[in-house]
């Protein structure tokens, strides 16, 4: 190897499809598990969080309006892009979580496969959770799932990449848009994921990624009147979790409480269905003749 000096990357937020620094101009030091300096990450402010909500709201209608097939294609594209940049993510995950390269590779593989799993769900979830209802009258009656809207996602603190993917993918698979708070101490895999999402045909604003202090950013998102739901996965402080749930009640956000999760296990459909509303539409069927039957 030459003694060439490497080019370091300035890690930036991912908001509305762009890569801004924090509007506050602040950064914080990110270190590896041995306390070695890795990067200066943006220390997001409450204003950054509000900007991210605006971007997520702007993107929501268009994203939900895409066909489920296309959303699936785009999520699959994310997996393809990640596969090509696997080495980078293995390095970042190894640094972030103190794993060996081989163990980090297992984690990254699982994260890529998780995008594939959710890519396949986009056009199936409606058939699993919706359907026709046999009402006792001459009515066509159909229940269909719809996205809840803008979801704040507090990503897991320890599982900086597999956990992160496991909480983002189910939210956007169904047409929600997300404001994601990355792992506070290990935000780099999340910030790099933004670069992958930006090149995967995912419309800007569908996923917005902030790094910073969980306790600083989350309260304004939990109380934000234009956020419809919040996943508290990465809130490790019970008092903060309770405070956020109380704030979320102000506009009756749907709340997923923090709970122990094995991110390497089969994810099931819980996170996929947690951010769905059920819409039921009735219409008279009428009848063609006096018999009232078509048989």
């Amino acid at each position: 190897m030459s003694d060439r000096l490497t080019v370091l990357k300035t890690y930036k937020l991912y908001v509305g499809g762009k890569f801004p620094r924090s509007e506050s101009g602040r950064v914080y030091e990110v270190t590896d598990s041995k306390n070695k300096w890795l990067a200066n990450a943006p220390l997001s402010s409450r204003k950054d969080a509000r900007d991210a909500v605006v971007a997520a709201r702007k993107a929501q209608g268009g994203w939900a309006g895409k066909t489920a097939y296309l959303r699936g294609q785009i999520l699959y594209r994310v997996a393809e892009m990640l596969e090509g940049r696997k080495d980078q993510f293995v390095r970042e995950v190894a640094d972030a979580e103190g794993l060996s390269k081989s163990k980090a590779a297992v984690v990254v593989d699982a994260a890529i496969d998780r995008w594939v799993w959710y890519a396949g769900w986009t056009d199936k979830v409606a058939q699993i959770v919706g359907g026709g209802n046999p009402v006792a009258g001459p009515f066509f009656n159909l229940s269909s799932p719809e996205p809840t809207g803008v979801v704040t996602v507090v990503a897991p603190q320890e599982s900086s990449f597999l956990g992160l993917v496991s909480v983002i993918a189910p939210v956007i698979a169904t047409g929600n848009t997300a404001v994601v708070i990355a792992s506070e101490n290990s935000p780099l895999p999340a910030l790099s994921l933004g670069e992958v999402l930006a090149t995967s045909d995912l419309p800007g604003g569908v996923v917005n990624i902030l790094s910073g202090r969980t306790a600083e950013i989350t309260p304004s998102l939990a109380s934000h009147q234009d956020v419809n739901a919040i996943d508290l996965a990465g809130v490790e402080d019970d008092d903060l979790a309770k405070e956020l749930e109380v704030a979320a009640a102000d506009n009756l956000k749907r709340v997923v409480r923090p709970q122990p999760v094995d991110w390497s296990a089969d994810p099931g459909t819980h996170r996929l269905t947690a951010f769905l509303e059920t819409k039921t539409v009735w219409h008279p069927t009428g009848s063609l003749g006096a018999s009232g039957s078509s048989y």
């Binding site: 209802n133 046999p134 009402v135 006792a136 009258g137 009515f139 009656n141 229940s143 509303e277 059920t278 819409k279 039921t280 539409v281 009735w282 219409h283 008279p284």
Partner: peptide
């Protein structure tokens, strides 16, 4: 959550 088209206020135990 509930949309009634060309009808209104219909309820049924099978209908969410």
């Amino acid at each position: 959550g509930v949309i009634w088209a060309n009808t209104f206020n219909k309820f049924d135990p099978t209908s969410p």
